[in-house]
Amino acid sequence: MHEMSLCESILQTLEQQAQAQRYRKVKTVWLEIGALAGVETDALRFCFDMVVRGSLADQAKLEIIDIPGQAWCLPCAKNVAVQQLYDECPLCGSHQLQINGGDQMRIKELEVE
């Protein structure tokens, strides 16, 4: 379950930023998660609650913002929406797609005290 290690990395980032920006409590974390990032959001929510217990983010609310997958179709020379890796182009059926969006996860925003 790599979602546990993702949550540990999120907590580490929150702790580092708390020192740098001088906040003491995290109330809400907004995460952008791409459809192609390979993250199981239900597992991430479960792990987040366990990992932050007893930390500056204890009881913090986790808000997930879904980012759609995008790819550049070489034959069409257009950006197209994709639901998963190795999808075919919805316009021409080609598999010559270059992923250019929706494969990342990042902390977008925090609500802190």
Rank of each mutant, 00 (worst) to 15 (best):
1 M>C: 05
1 M>R: 07
2 H>G: 01
3 E>V: 12
5 S>P: 03
6 L>P: 04
7 C>T: 02
7 C>F: 04
8 E>H: 07
10 I>V: 13
10 I>D: 03
11 L>W: 03
11 L>R: 00
11 L>V: 11
12 Q>N: 12
13 T>Y: 11
16 Q>G: 04
16 Q>L: 06
18 A>L: 02
18 A>N: 02
19 Q>S: 09
19 Q>R: 04
19 Q>F: 03
20 A>P: 08
21 Q>K: 15
21 Q>H: 14
23 Y>T: 05
23 Y>I: 04
28 T>D: 01
28 T>C: 05
29 V>N: 02
29 V>S: 06
30 W>L: 07
31 L>W: 13
31 L>C: 10
33 I>P: 03
34 G>H: 09
34 G>R: 14
35 A>H: 10
37 A>H: 09
38 G>E: 14
39 V>P: 04
39 V>G: 05
40 E>F: 03
40 E>V: 11
40 E>H: 13
41 T>H: 05
42 D>R: 12
42 D>A: 07
44 L>W: 12
44 L>M: 14
45 R>V: 11
45 R>I: 14
48 F>A: 07
48 F>H: 06
48 F>Q: 09
48 F>T: 12
48 F>K: 05
48 F>C: 10
49 D>M: 08
49 D>L: 09
49 D>C: 08
50 M>I: 15
51 V>Q: 02
53 R>W: 04
53 R>I: 01
53 R>Q: 13
54 G>W: 10
54 G>S: 15
55 S>V: 09
55 S>K: 11
55 S>Q: 01
56 L>V: 08
56 L>H: 00
56 L>N: 00
57 A>W: 08
58 D>S: 09
58 D>N: 15
60 A>T: 00
60 A>N: 03
60 A>R: 01
60 A>V: 02
61 K>V: 15
62 L>M: 08
62 L>Q: 04
63 E>C: 13
65 I>A: 09
66 D>V: 06
67 I>H: 06
67 I>M: 11
68 P>G: 07
69 G>I: 07
70 Q>Y: 15
72 W>C: 06
72 W>R: 10
74 L>K: 11
75 P>Q: 08
75 P>Y: 11
75 P>H: 10
76 C>R: 01
77 A>L: 04
78 K>C: 04
78 K>R: 15
78 K>E: 15
78 K>P: 05
79 N>Q: 11
80 V>C: 00
80 V>I: 05
83 Q>S: 07
84 Q>L: 06
86 Y>A: 07
87 D>N: 13
87 D>T: 09
87 D>E: 07
88 E>C: 14
88 E>I: 07
89 C>L: 11
90 P>M: 12
90 P>T: 10
90 P>C: 13
91 L>A: 06
91 L>W: 07
97 L>E: 02
97 L>A: 05
98 Q>V: 15
98 Q>I: 15
99 I>K: 01
100 N>S: 08
101 G>S: 06
101 G>I: 12
102 G>V: 10
103 D>G: 00
104 Q>N: 05
105 M>N: 03
105 M>E: 05
106 R>Y: 09
106 R>A: 10
106 R>Q: 12
107 I>C: 00
107 I>Y: 01
107 I>A: 00
108 K>D: 09
109 E>H: 02
110 L>T: 02
112 V>L: 00
112 V>D: 01
113 E>W: 02
113 E>A: 03
